[in-house]
Amino acid sequence: MTSLTPAQAYRLDIRKTRAVKPGRAGEDPERGVLYSAALRQFEDLLTSSEAAGHAGRPVPLFYALSQAGRALVAAFGDTPIVNGHGLGEHRSGDATVGLLDRRIRRVATKHGDDAFGAVAAALGSPAFTGSASLGSIWTSTPGASDLLDHDLDSSWCPPLLACLGVHDKRVGMSLYSTARRPRRSVDPKEISGSRYPRVPDAASIDDSWGFGHFENVKHVATASWDPAGNQVEDELRGRLSRTRGDLYDDALLLSSVNEDSDAMHPLMSWWALLFALSIFARYHPTLWVSSLDPDRSRLAVPIQALLDVAPDAVAALVWEAVFPEKPKSLPILTSYWSRLSAEELAEFDRVRSKRGDDFCALRTT
């Protein structure tokens, strides 16, 4: 029996929609023709990207996603046609600026029909404003941020694993690092609405207690707030991002790429990331190729790993966009744990040493 990988299954499911088209592409023949043509190019370009070496891979990768975006706009957009990328390089004129500090800017068209803006609108996602560095975009992208083991700038904020909860008339979320080997600790003071826009400005941030528990990850903080009379599920809905694919399994609190923008849909984060890589590969080949040399560049292995996982990540995100899921009930925990005081920890250690076994130093109520 032939066994398909998840990525292969996603691609086959997407290809099937060329015969039974979703949304407006199934109702309007002109949109339907555009949808099928763009998806055919998406698949060909994605396959081409896998055959390319790392030096050239960002270009077909980005254009594969770009053509998938045109298909999504044909199916779910207000108008089926897009004009221009909607993104560009923010050139400083300083050739010494490192790759992660180079910037991409938003170049929205007057009518919002640029590709980036039109796809974001079709997905119901914000589109970032101003400009953002490659490092910030990369760090904020789900499924990619953990690959960046460079020294992280404190202004680059990663997505955080999250558990929703309610306790003592307050609602909130406990937040954990997604990285198996965190490059830096996320300070609880960084959990604010400016970089994590789904956290209310009125939330209290505490690092000593939380809802739920994730194994083998670092608890960062818990944000909690008064729901002000709103139903618990209504107050918490829409604050986290989930995926049905293999890109990430748990709910995430997404970060923004700069302080003036909202957090984007994961597909839009990958779009901005792959656009940036394709720009630097095309227009700064010396910088790009030198960054791929593992004998000289600390970025080489993270970039190569990113480009290796990107085709499957793109396929998963396009699949989720083509087959949108209806809202479900949220998993909301009603218990909480608190860290023990120094005196309590000392007593636990004393009892444990006498018993000779191990148990969790968490209190659940």
Rank of each mutant, 00 (worst) to 15 (best):
G86W: 07
H150D: 12
P266F: 01
A313D: 00
C157V: 02
R183P: 10
P159N: 03
D94K: 13
T178Y: 02
A144I: 01
E89G: 13
E89I: 03
L240H: 02
L252M: 06
I104N: 07
R15S: 14
L299S: 04
Y10C: 11
S338N: 14
M1F: 03
K328H: 04
D226T: 06
P29L: 05
Y10D: 15
R363L: 08
P142L: 01
L345M: 15
R31G: 09
E233Q: 12
A202M: 09
G98R: 14
T334D: 12
L340G: 15
R181N: 13
G86S: 08
R18K: 14
A95P: 10
L307P: 03
L292I: 00
S241N: 02
D260G: 06
G88I: 03
N258Q: 04
R105H: 09
R184G: 10
A346W: 08
G130F: 11
V314C: 04
H213G: 08
Y63G: 12
P311I: 00
V20M: 13
H111D: 14
G98I: 03
R170S: 12
T129K: 12
E347M: 14
G356M: 04
H265T: 07
L252T: 01
A64T: 02
D201R: 13
G98N: 10
R183I: 12
T365K: 08
D249E: 12
S136G: 08
H150L: 15
V220W: 01
R298V: 10
S177M: 08
C360F: 06
G356V: 02
I205V: 15
S256V: 11
G88R: 15
G212H: 03
D260C: 04
E344K: 14
S92P: 12
P285I: 00
T17H: 09
A223K: 02
G23V: 13
E259A: 14
S255C: 00
L292Q: 00
Y176W: 15
G93L: 08
A95N: 10
S185E: 11
A38N: 13
Y336G: 02
D78P: 06
F214L: 11
A75C: 09
D249K: 11
V217Y: 08
D113I: 11
R180A: 11
A75Q: 08
A202N: 11
A95I: 12
F116A: 12
